[in-house]
Amino acid sequence: MSAEATQSRRDWLLSERPASRMQARLGRAYVAWRRFSANRLAFVGLLIIIALLAVAALAGVLAPYSPTFGDLKNARLLAPSAQHWFGTDDLGRDIYSRILYGSRWTLYVVVLVAIIAAPIGLLVGTVAGYAGGWTDAILMRITDIFLAFPKLVLALAFVAALGPGIENAVLAIAITSWPPYARIARAETLTVRNSDYIKAVQLMGASPFRIVLRHIMPLCISSLIVRVTLDMAGIILTAAGLGFLGLGAQPPLPEWGTMIASGRRFILDQWWVAGAPGFAILIVSLGFNLLGDGLRDALDPRSGDQ
């Protein structure tokens, strides 16, 4: 592609006079992208997350061994080597393969929790913030009750009630992680609720439902995305914690937290059994945190639209 074509495309994207809806939207996205990619660390975060996605998609191709069946006779607790990059565990399974497959479960947990918790928080927060009065008081007291307990303890209680298993772990984490989102959405709603542009929509005759859905929620979404991304690391850790306590994914599922749990017995002699999945959690959490920081700079409406 010639430099000229690149330049003209950039001009098209940055045009002050977009000719279509599409161009306006793409231009806005491009500006956000430029702000995002100017942040080197955020870019690293994005690369980590892309790598995670790729690994999860291609685990079947990349993994040299089966994640669930090991060679009990010959390959128990082998140290990292050219054959088994991260060594093997007590059942003779290749840890590298298990980690690759485990990335699927990590993604599964993270995505499901985000899909369940973020919309609940957004809905509760914006409705409470916009309606005010009794609705606000009731919704926010419920939120406070959830916030009063440590996340892991509450999740533990839910899993104990629902029964162990990764689906229930996801559900429990989702139920415990929406309150902060509701708080953020409410705070954001309160700042825009009395603005003239919301008044103007009221004067169009819009219903409260429409105002919340179409005018207030879009304003809350960017700070919510940032917060959810930053929370991803915490979600992974909570899932791992539940797995570690035996209440999340059940063996032989190659979930990273469960893997650490089963490796803890050998942590002094065969450190790689618990160390490798721990390191994986560390890297992915770091990736989400860096990405979230970058998104905050790129999407934060307060950092100015100019």
């Binding site: 977009p18 809806r21 306006a24 603005s195 003239d196 542009y197 008044k199 103007a200 929509v201 004067l203 005018h215 879009p218 304003l219 409406p301 639209d305």
Partner: peptide, 18 residues
Amino acid sequence: QMVFQDPYGSLHPRQTVD
């Protein structure tokens, strides 16, 4: 219908004119 005082505050920051 009404026109507000502050033109910077009366247009939604995330919406195009359209």
